[in-house]
Structure formats: C-alpha cells, structure tokens
Amino acid sequence: MKSRPVAEKKRVLYRLGEVLESYTMLAPAYVIFLVFIFVPVVWAFYLSFFDYSILSMRTPEFSGIDNFRRVFSDPVFWTALKNTVRYSLGTVPTRLVLGLLLALALDQANLWGRKIFRTIYFLPVVTSMVAAAIVWSLVFSASNNGLANQFLSLFDVAPKGWLSDSNLAMFSVCVLSVWKDLGYVMTIFTAGLQGIPLELYEAGAIDGATVWQRIRFITIPLLRPTTFFILVTEIISSFQVFTQTYVMTSGGPGYSTTTLINLLHNKGFVQFDMGYASALAVALFISLLFLSWVLRKVFKADEIVY
C-alpha cells in the first residue's frame, strides 16, 4: 500500500532530476546563444526603429518605420538585392550540379586516384577566403600577366577586364566562389550517396535500367534530404556573401558587385548609420526565414525528419 506513492514520488523526483540535468547540459550552448547572438539580434531589431549613429553619442531617437522606408526607397538597396540574387543564382545551382556530378563520378570504389581527387577538390574549402580572394584577384588581373588572361591568350583571345568590367565582375566573383565551395557540396553529396542502400541499385540493374535511368529514378529522389540540406545552407550562405566582393572589387565597378552585406558593411561600419544597417539586417533575416520556409514546403521537408 505504502510502496506505490513512494515509487511514484521517486519517479517524479527522478524525472525532475533528469529534466534539470538535461537543461544543465543545454545551458552552455544556450547561454552563449543568448548572450552573443540573441541579445545582439534583439538589439539590432530594436535599433532598426531608431535614428541612431552610435559614433555620434546622441541618444537614439525613435523613428518608427522610417529606417525601413529609407532602405526600400534607396536604389542602391535594390541594386544590391539584385546582385545578391544574381550571385545566388550564379553559384548555388552551379555548385549543386557540379557537386553532384563530381560526387557521382567519384562514387565508384574502383576509380583510380579517388582519394587524391577528393582531396584536391576539397582543398579550396579549407583555405581562407581572404587569401583565396587575394590570389584570385591576381588570377583575374586585367593586365595580360593574370592567369585568366594568360589562359585566354593561348586561344588568341584579347585580355579581359575580369574584375573591372561590370558585365564580367560578378561572373568572376562567382567563379571564385564556386571554386571555393564546390568541394563542400561534393562532400555532402558523397555522404548522401553512401546513405543509399546498394540493393536498390542492384534491383535497378536487374530491371535493365541504364546509368542515366538509375540516376534519374533512384539516386536523385533518394538524395532529396541531402539536396534540401545543401540548398538551404548554400542559399543562406550565398545571401551573406561579402569577403569576396570586398577584397576583389570593393563592390565595383559601379555598384555591379555590391551585395546586401557590402551595403550593410558600408552603412554600419563606414558610415555608422546603425538605423539603416539594422533595418537592412532585419529585412534580410526575415527574407531568409521566409525562403527556408518556402524550401521546406517545396521539398516537403516535414516528411524528412528535419
């Protein structure tokens, strides 16, 4: 008679202890998120409604949605948005397709030099973006000394202003970016391919499916979770592009490589116009959230335990 409530009590206590211990285990990560991410984010949100230049030491004046109005009526913002979308469209699909092709090509266990290839293709991922951008600005140097123009001269093509021609500058930035991150995408796809049960391919082979059919009807559908993962992380990071354009072109020529973060950096750190920068940041954050929500719907990601 007496033992049951005791057992109950014990279980409740145990459960309580377990919950407490779990929270303690979460604490380090979330304390850091709280102090170093959430507080600054809330601060940024708050500032977006104020007319504030932190350098001027004036008290911030509440200005309602004035900062947002300034952002959206600024033609440079729309150019930057267009450039960022161009960058995203120029890099994400390219990386996705090339990365998948590479992963498929290197998926054969008997391929000679497989590991060397994987290492080489991954090499740019580990180099620093600053160093990569410096080296690539030499590659794209307008004089005929640049590697890119040396290559063109092999085919008797006149040297091009890779970074000084507004029609080419964004392309050059995209080339660097694809080069830099292709290995990452390849690696994730390789991992995804390893997760596909071999039996499925064997079954496909028995049914007389061609290589292409196998890829089309087995590999690609089964890679959906992987593709979703890559797409989300790649799109998010493509909207944050900055170092490349900052080092190679400082956003020029004209505004042709000015991206959203270039604009944010310029407003926030060169002009210290925190109101504008914060409003831009908030707009960017909300659109990224929205974009990942759309992607989830498109990929029916809710079905993919994520």
Binding site: A142, S143, P159, W162, L163, S164, A169, T249, P253
Partner: peptide, 21 residues
C-alpha cells in the same frame, strides 16, 4: 588608358609604369 582600369589597384598601374606599359 590600358584595359580593365575601372577597379584596378594603383599598385598595378605602378607596376605597368615600371614595366614600360
């Protein structure tokens, strides 16, 4: 003017000058 000068670094112009270009 040499091609590709809209965003060129001054250092590169100096180099071209030193090289006689």
């Amino acid at each position: 003017t040499p091609p590709g000068i809209t965003t060129i670094a001054l250092q590169d112009i100096q180099k071209m000058f030193a090289e006689g270009k």
